[in-house]
Amino acid sequence: MGAAHTSVPEVLDALKDVSYPADRDRLLTAAREAGASDDVVMALRSIPAEEYGGREEVARAVRDSGPGHATAQRASQARHAGRPGIAQHLRDEPKTPIHEEFDR
Rank of each mutant, 00 (worst) to 15 (best):
V8K: 08
A75S: 04
R91F: 04
A3I: 07
G82K: 15
E100T: 08
G35N: 11
G35Q: 09
A49Q: 07
R60T: 14
L28H: 00
A59E: 10
P48F: 05
R24Q: 10
Y20C: 01
F102Q: 11
E10Q: 15
A87V: 13
V62I: 05
G35I: 08
P67V: 09
A49E: 07
A70I: 05
A34C: 07
S7G: 10
H80I: 04
E101D: 13
E93V: 12
P21K: 03
R45G: 05
G2C: 07
R104T: 01
D17K: 11
A14W: 13
I98K: 14
D38N: 09
R91S: 12
A75R: 13
K16Y: 04
D13K: 15
S76N: 03
V40Y: 06
R45T: 06
L27V: 00
G85F: 09
R55D: 12
E57N: 09
R91K: 13
P97V: 02
R74S: 02
R91D: 07
Y52I: 01
G82L: 15
H69C: 06
V40Q: 10
P48W: 01
P84D: 06
P21S: 02
V18P: 04
E56Q: 15
D64M: 08
V58T: 04
V58P: 03
D23M: 01
D64H: 10
G68A: 08
G35A: 12
V58R: 02
P97S: 06
A43C: 08
S46T: 02
Y20R: 03
A31C: 09
A3S: 12
D92L: 15
R26N: 03
E10T: 15
P21I: 02
A14P: 04
V62M: 07
Q77T: 03
R91N: 08
A4L: 12
P21Q: 06
L44Q: 04
T6F: 04
P97T: 06
I47G: 01
R32W: 01
G85E: 10
V41G: 00
Q88G: 14
Q73Y: 08
S7H: 14
G35M: 11
S65E: 05
A34F: 00
K95I: 02
V40P: 08
D39Y: 05
V18D: 00
L15D: 01
P94W: 03
D39W: 00
D23N: 13
V58E: 06
A43R: 03
V62C: 15
M1Q: 14
V18K: 05
S7L: 11
